[in-house]
Design a protein around this nucleic acid. Structure first.
Lengths: 145, 145
DNA sequence: TTGCCACTTCAAGTCAACTTGAGGTCAAGA
DNA sequence: TCTTGACCTCAAGTTGACTTGAAGTGGCAA
């Protein structure tokens, strides 16, 4: 049966072995057992890692990712919380579209300062709290480190 | 003229004053001057902060955001690099859509383990390196913070 | 059976991005 | 004049997410 050594999983996923050990340590992924000392991972670990990667991209902490998807795809969060997460991501997608448009504009516009370019300002007017006082941004998290 | 005290800017943007000072220290934002000891910010700082917030959401480091947009909206990056960033963001948006769909599925599907649910697996098959060995994810960065 | 080398553990180190704390300044209201 | 309270600086501390290093283990090819 096609179990994967940590080195193989690392190579296929692009995630360093040290990180995989760390992920297992904090309960984010699971190895199916050991051969000697060596962890053996099932192929679903790859899917799991893809999910983790996307969750990180979305700005979730490893703790949140763990809660949302669990080791074996079992969520510890109530349905409503999951939908809220999804809503956050929707908002984030809208922000990213704005940002992408702003970047493309900066790449093409020849104005010396984009802050004074009306087109640029219009692009950004779609951004969170760009001018109107609003609540602190909802899905914001630090992505530190 | 409507200059903003750091406290006001903080309140309107949702960004802590300590963070605003830190951002100024690393050259990410600029105050227009001082009144006594106190920094005075122009209203464009709000737009600037919105941009920074979106950049962080996209997983860029503060250094990269600085390079892409500068203090006064002046980029230090060549056109091509900016378009590459935009391309990265496009990829990220696609990933987020997948993740959102996965979350909505987990919220609704009653299968005990989603990893074994064919619909879930199909959703994830759109993810980076979900099964096929590919390059390490391109736009991935640690968001450490 | 020897030797290699990919793995193992565990503790400590690193890094970005902030946050906190101590001690100080200053304008305004009581 | 005195006291608040919002700001200031600067150094040190914190946090999450890893990474590194030292010292050890064990499967497998020669």
């Amino acid at each position: 049966m096609n179990l994967l050594d940590i080195g193989v999983l690392s190579e296929r996923s692009g995630v360093p072995a040290s990180t995989l050990r760390y992920y297992e340590e904090i309960g984010l992924i699971e190895s199916l057992g050991r051969r000697g000392l060596r962890r053996q991972f099932g192929p679903e670990a790859l899917t799991q890692l893809a999910l983790i990667s996307m969750g990180k991209t979305a700005g979730f902490s490893l703790e949140e990712i763990k809660n949302a998807f669990g080791k074996r795809g079992v969520s510890t969060l109530p349905r409503q919380a999951l939908h809220r997460r999804a809503d956050d991501i929707d908002a984030q997608i809208r922000g990213l579209i704005t940002l992408r448009n702003a970047l493309r504009h900066v790449a093409e516009c020849s104005a010396p300062s984009h802050m004074e370019c009306p087109k640029f300002r219009r692009l950004l007017s779609l951004a969170p709290y760009s001018h109107a006082p609003t609540e602190a941004q909802p899905g914001a998290r630090a992505k530190r480190k």
